[in-house]
Every structure is written in structure tokens, then in C-alpha cells.
């Protein structure tokens, strides 16, 4: 009996867990994530109205979509959206993270309040701000008539920036949490040493906190940039791409082209462009962070 059991156990150790354990995850992932990724590339060469059967159209759709001024305008708008969003979100999130990492009582209270936006879905936030930014009945009514009646979401020159602000309002708290966790992992000995060397608050931030946070900065930046690139929900609810096409960034352009104009081919081309830009950004940033990996993150911490 014991001999049989032993040999059974030995065989099990040799073979390890069977492959079928991974099968459900692989099938689900393969069918509804990996296959669509391949599918979007295939569909970008096909003509399809969303109802009938997709028909092969070759490179024509690619040429038409890429040379279309509307696509180029959307691409440029997306670049502005991503860059300005980053310039707004990154410093605010970093500073809030450093701020809330402090152990003072009032900062803990502030940190709870900073968490508020995370309780809401993007749709909820979009709807709230749509009402808040209304030039007639929103926040503008709180002041005497004529002082703050700017039509933030209705003015083509302002709408994109108003949207960037709202998107920032959504995402800053999450990134502040990442930075808070990052700062709290920095060894206190580094600050003690810096203080002994006579470093002030600003110098500590510059020479201790920022270098120690470099991995958090890379992670957060990647998520911010790719997140802005693929941002859909808030913008859709806030402006649906308007006024005119003022906030029609690529994800909106893709949705509206595919599901409102029923041109799935061109919409797939835009989707492929999104995937390529997204992957390039992620890869580039992981390279940048990978280059410094040989250096210990805690170098100098005793």
C-alpha cells in the first residue's frame, strides 16, 4: 500500500499540475481578448456595416482612412489631449502622493476627501460635470450674472481643455494613491541623512524623493499615457466628441465611425492605430525603466 502511494506521489511531483487547469482561462482569454486583437487587424482590411457579412476590400480602406483629413485631425487632437492631460495629471498626482504620504492628522483627512472621485463611475462623473459646467444653470449661477458664464463644453476652443480637466479629476486620485504607496516605501534613513547634510524640504524632494520614486513614476506615467490615449467613457458622456468635432479624439472617432456611421472597416483601422501607439508607448517606457534596473532601487539606504 505505502509503496503504491509513494510511487503515485513521486509521479505527481514529476509531472506537476496538468495543463487542463489553465485551459478555462486560456480559452476565455484567447476567444475574447487575443482573437479580437487579431480580428481587428483583419477587419481593418474589410468592408462591413455592422450587420451583414464582412467583405474583403484590401488596402483601400487603410489608404482612405489614413489620408482622410478627419482622421489626421483626430490623431493630432489625441496627441494634444494625451500630452496636456499628462502635464496636468502627473505633477498634481505626484505632489498629492508626497503630500498624503506625510503622517500629519490633517493630511489623513485630506486623503480621505481626495478619494471621493474614485467612488464614481466615469459615466457618473461625466454627467455631473455636464450639469456643473452648464453655462446657464450650472456653477455659473452661483455668482452674479455675467461673471462666469463661459460655455466650457460648448465652445470649440475650450471644450478639449474642459474635458482634460474633468478626465484629470477622475484619474488624479488613483495615481496619487500609487505615489503615496511609493513614497511610504522610501527608507526614513535617506531623509535623516539628507537632513544631516542640511537639505531643505525642496532639496529632499528633488534629491531623495524623486530619484527613489523612479519606478512608480514609470508605472504611473505608462498608465496615464495609455489611459489618456484610450479614454472613452468620460469624453463620450461629456461631449460625445462635440461641439463639432472639437473633442473627437481617436477612441471617440473609432466608436462614432463604427457604431454611428456603420463603417466598421475604417473604425478598425483607427483601432489598429490605437493598438500600435499604445504598444509603442508601453514598450518604450518599459525600456526606459529597464535600463536602470541594474542599479538597486534602494542604493545607498543603510
Amino acid at each position: 500500500m505505502t509503496i503504491v502511494r509513494r510511487s503515485g506521489a513521486a509521479r505527481m511531483r514529476r509531472t506537476g499540475p496538468p495543463f487542463w487547469l489553465a485551459l478555462p482561462a486560456l480559452v476565455l482569454f484567447g476567444c475574447f481578448a487575443l482573437l479580437p486583437l487579431v480580428g481587428v487587424a483583419v477587419l481593418s482590411f474589410m468592408e462591413w456595416d455592422g450587420l451583414g457579412t464582412p467583405r474583403w476590400a484590401g488596402t483601400e480602406i487603410w489608404l482612405d482612412t489614413v489620408t482622410d483629413p478627419a482622421t489626421r485631425a483626430a490623431l493630432w487632437r489625441t496627441v494634444v489631449f494625451v500630452v496636456v492631460s499628462y502635464l496636468f495629471q502627473a505633477p498634481v498626482a505626484l505632489l498629492l502622493g508626497v503630500f498624503t504620504a506625510g503622517r500629519q492628522r490633517y493630511r489623513a483627512v485630506f486623503a480621505v476627501l481626495y478619494f471621493l472621485p474614485l467612488l464614481f463611475s466615469s459615466a457618473a462623473i461625466g454627467i455631473t460635470f455636464r450639469s456643473l459646467l452648464d453655462p446657464n444653470f450650472g456653477l455659473s449661477r452661483a455668482f452674479s450674472p455675467g461673471t462666469l458664464t463661459t460655455n466650457w463644453l460648448g465652445d470649440p476652443d475650450l471644450a478639449l481643455y474642459a474635458v482634460i480637466f474633468v478626465v484629470g479629476w477622475c484619474f488624479v486620485p488613483f495615481h496619487a494613491l500609487l505615489y503615496q504607496a511609493g513614497v511610504r516605501q522610501i527608507p526614513a534613513s535617506l531623509y535623516e541623512a539628507a537632513t544631516l547634510d542640511g537639505a531643505g524640504r525642496w532639496q529632499q524632494l528633488r534629491h531623495v524623493t524623486l530619484p527613489q520614486l523612479r519606478y512608480t513614476i514609470v508605472t504611473s506615467s505608462t498608465l496615464m499615457l495609455v489611459g489618456s490615449l484610450t479614454c472613452f467613457d468620460v469624453v463620450f458622456v461629456l461631449t460625445a466628441g462635440g461641439p463639432g468635432e472639437a473633442t473627437r479624439i481617436l477612441p471617440l472617432d473609432m466608436y462614432l465611425t463604427g457604431f454611428r456611421s456603420y463603417q466598421m472597416g475604417p473604425a478598425s483601422v483607427i483601432a489598429v492605430i490605437l493598438v500600435v501607439i499604445g504598444l509603442t508607448l508601453s514598450l518604450f517606457l518599459s525600456r526606459v525603466s529597464g535600463a536602470g534596473r541594474m542599479q538597486s532601487q534602494q542604493a545607498g539606504a543603510a
Binding site: 481578448a33 477612441p251 473609432m254
Partner: peptide
Amino acid sequence: GTLRLVLLGLAIPVQATIIPVYYL
């Protein structure tokens, strides 16, 4: 190999796959 394949999925932007997902 399976692990590498699955982790590749971390980089797939969900939004970009809505058309094939809809088709499926």
C-alpha cells in the same frame, strides 16, 4: 510559454477590440 502569452495580454488596450468583440 503560456505565462508569457497571457502576460502579453497586459498590453492590449480593451477599447481597441470593441469591433471584433461585437462581431463575436
